[in-house]
Design a protein around this nucleic acid. Structure first.
Length: 577
RNA sequence: GGUCCCGUGGUGCAGUUUGGAGUGCACGCCGCCCUGUCAAGGCGGAGGUCGCGGGUUCAAAUCCCGUCGGGACCGCCA
């Protein structure tokens, strides 16, 4: 139908007879003898000059044929890429009329997201969504290229699988042919990709849809896409190299700048310095160790096994009493007992509610340790080390996190995650990743001797990729050795029968010759969002769900008809209805 | 499971603190005028269950309770 896209016409097209198709953006009607119609497609906008009487309204779909010509002297518009030219002598075919859109098409004001989602097909026409979805497509494409180039083979894995007990809550699908039985939708292709390794695929990848029935957030939807990969006869460094290549390629494709070498930090260091396993390293304000200052303190609140602080530069001037109270309440809601704060005055004198319980030495050493300057604010948390790091990590973000799109792209590998995340009441450790994660080689001995809390010190060969404080993805070297696997199951309190019930087919597969293998997966929605300068992954998803998991466009989820339920052998409980 | 914020013509907002007539702004919409605009301009007009329910009050957009929807976060997401 068309000869050109609207946004592509330039002075070099002068004199050409062109046909463009698109939606009527703004129109400036002077009379029945002169009207300016801005026609829009995904490429941009072009001004069409119409000199006949036409009823062309906002969002009408039109095909316009005319001649490209320069605009009148001094009438060019430098805000438009096509601003030098216009299409004159236009003949217009209205292809579809349109009701007025339910929200403004210009992007000068934010529109309520529910309304955008209810009419997503209109929202998608806007430059923002056009740009974001095309950025996302570039990310997908460059990831595919990078993986193919590195010898990875794209394998598709099933969506209807068996539910496994570990991990996130499954979405389930009732089986018509096997009443009383259910499929689960995959939380990830984890087990299948390991089976691919046993199957000699050597290097597997997939841009995979994953589903988890957990509460939604700005960076979490029920369904999301991951670059999922696994490789045989490789170690952690190989995986980091493979994934870094794909990440750098996609960032370069979008931004035009290739990121430098991605730094690595151990989990331990991340927790101590940033209070998070996904530190946002775009800004400092690191956690400072203060425990040793208060070994002999009289101040009750500091008589605990860990005291740390953060320094908010010029915070004393920025934060009033109300703001401090609000931060204190936040910290308490996160699980802190309280928040100690000190305003820094002249000569590093400290002013705060707790100074009267502290010795002069403690006060001056606190100010010195924090490298405080006049006008700064010191925040201190005292508690169990885990709690202190966690709360200060959250507080640091609350106070000083830069907006998305500022501070560059700080990719970061976090390595040496602990093998176990906590100890259950039963005394059994709970795995931090999954039970096939290979322990750190230096900690294999500890695995045999550890008891109680000591288990938490055992490191694993699990690693995360972080970008600007978002967890992009995680992976690990897997256990392929039967002895170690048995040992892990023993520690976790999973006996052979139970192990076979839960992961039988994987363990079966491993009996027939499993290569050493390792893998990774990272979230494409999150990567695409951050590369698009969006702080919400819904902005890079064509048809996302709301925080409560509903879709204002299709009204999903909806009830099933009684017939439908009956066919599936399902009956709704009275409490649920 | 929990904390916090928002809900006012089609859209975005002000009004809520301190109760007093659906009061206001911008955009959009409809009609008329207008031959160089580009967020066109001028004149006129239509459009409201102040999310919903209950309570307090002579009187509720405003105060109280509940509820629904949306958003941010904690928990959760091996």
């Amino acid at each position: 139908m068309r000869t050109h896209y609207c946004g592509e016409l330039r002075s070099s097209d002068l004199g050409a007879e062109v046909t463009v198709c698109g939606w009527v953006d703004t129109r400036r009607v002077h009379s029945e003898h002169l009207a300016f119609i801005d026609l829009r497609d995904h490429s941009g906008i072009v001004q069409c000059v119409v000199d006949e009487k036409l009823d062309l309204r906002s969002e009408y779909v039109a095909m316009i044929t005319g001649t490209v010509r320069t605009r009148f002297e001094g009438k060019s518009n430098d805000k438009l890429a096509t601003g030098e030219i216009e299409i004159g002598d236009c003949s217009v075919h209205v292809l579809s009329i349109a009701e007025p859109p339910p929200f403004p098409m210009h992007e000068r004001s934010e529109v309520d997201e529910t309304i955008r989602l209810r009419h997503r097909y209109i929202d998608l026409r806007k430059p923002r969504m056009q740009k974001n979805l095309r950025t996302r497509a570039k990310v997908n494409s460059s990831i595919r290229n990078a993986m193919e180039r590195q010898g990875f083979v794209e394998i598709e894995t099933p969506m209807l699988i068996a539910s496994t007990p570990e991990g996130a809550r499954d979405f389930v699908v009732p089986s018509r042919l096997h009443p009383t039985n259910f499929y689960a939708l995959p939380q990830s292709p984890q087990i299948f990709k390991q089976l691919c390794m046993v199957g000699g695929i050597d290097r597997y990848y997939q841009i995979a849809r994953c589903l988890r029935d957990e509460d939604l957030r700005a960076d979490r939807q029920f369904e999301f896409m991951q670059l999922d990969m696994e490789a045989s006869f490789v170690d952690q460094d190989d995986i980091i190299t493979f994934v870094s290549e794909a990440i750098k390629d996609s960032a370069e494709t979008v931004t035009g700048i290739r990121p430098g070498e991605i730094p690595t930090m151990t989990w331990q260091e991340a927790m101590e310095r940033f209070g998070s396993d996904k530190p946002d390293t775009r800004f400092g304000m690191e956690l400072i160790e203060l425990t040793h200052l208060f070994e002999h303190t009289e101040a009750k609140v500091f008589k605990v096994n860990c005291v740390k602080g953060i320094l908010y530069p010029e915070g004393a001037e920025i934060l009033g009493r109300n703001a401090i109270d609000a931060l204190t309440e936040k910290c308490q809601s996160w699980g802190a007992k309280g928040l100690a704060w000190f305003r820094v005055g002249k000569n590093r004198e400290l002013d705060g509610a707790l100074t009267k319980f502290m010795s002069a030495d403690e006060i001056s050493e606190l100010a010195t340790s924090m490298e405080a300057k006049e006008g700064d604010m010191i925040f201190v948390i005292a508690d169990q080390r885990r709690v202190v790091n966690h709360i200060l990590g959250l507080l640091r973000l609350e106070i000083a996190r830069p907006p998305v799109g500022e501070g560059g792209l700080n990719f970061l590998w976090i390595t040496e995650f602990p093998l176990f995340e906590s100890i259950a009441d039963s005394g059994m450790p709970i795995p931090a990743h999954h039970p096939f994660t290979m322990p750190h080689p230096e900690d294999l001995e500890k695995l045999e001797t550890a008891a109680g809390e000591e288990f938490l010190e055992i490191r694993s060969q699990a690693y995360d990729l972080v970008l600007n404080g978002w967890e992009l993805g995680s992976g690990s070297v897997r256990i392929h050795n039967k002895e170690i696997q048995t040992q892990i199951f023993e520690i976790l309190g999973i006996n052979e029968t139970e192990a076979n019930e839960k992961f039988g087919f994987l363990l079966d597969a491993f009996r027939y010759g499993a290569p050493p293998h390792a893998g990774f997966a990272f979230g494409i929605d999150r990567l695409a969002a951050l590369l698009s300068g969006e702080e919400n992954i819904r902005e890079v998803i064509a048809f996302p769900k709301t925080q409560s998991g509903s879709d204002p466009l299709t009204n999903a989820p909806t009830p099933l008809s009684p017939t439908h339920l009956e066919e599936l052998g399902l009956r709704l409980s009275p409490e649920a209805t």
